[in-house]
């Protein structure tokens, strides 16, 4: 088994592990983390399969760099949405509770 396949197989397991976590974890922040693990796994598959005996294919490398940047953009938007949702929920809770108190712990 060559080096490239070792990393590509690790990527395949990471993708499955991330998918499993995405299904069973019920908090959106943890699901966001799981998506990042799936992405990292897919990047490793791309990079590993481009690993030749003497060089690594530059095309998947460029593709993975693009992918990492897009993943960060997605994570930033996802995190902002999760925080905003929590703020909206806290505001609703404070408004509907008779004492109008602080957000529920």
């Amino acid at each position: 088994m060559v080096t490239g396949h070792v990393y590509a197989l690790t990527g395949a397991i990471l993708a499955g592990l991330g998918l499993f976590a995405f299904i069973i974890l019920r908090h959106p922040l943890r699901q966001l983390l799981a998506i990042n693990v799936v992405g990292a796994g897919i990047f490793l598959i791309l990079g590993g399969l481009g690993r030749g005996p003497d060089a690594t294919d530059p095309l998947p490398q460029a593709l993975v760099i693009t992918g990492i940047v897009v993943a960060v953009a997605l994570t930033a938007f996802g995190a902002a949405m999760i925080v905003r949702l929590a703020e909206a929920r806290a505001a609703t809770n404070a408004a509907t509770r008779p004492d109008g108190g602080k957000p529920v712990p």
Binding site: G4, L32, N36, G47, T56, V64, I68, V72, I82
Partner: peptide, 28 residues
């Protein structure tokens, strides 16, 4: 990625994948 001889990707992964994403998640 260094093991795969892809230093460009290694730099991007450590800076963006670990660094920026980590800060984003900690802040969130």
């Amino acid at each position: 990625w260094l093991g795969l001889d892809a230093v460009n990707v290694a730099l991007a992964e450590i800076a963006l994948g670990a660094g920026v994403t980590g800060v984003l998640l900690i802040l969130a």
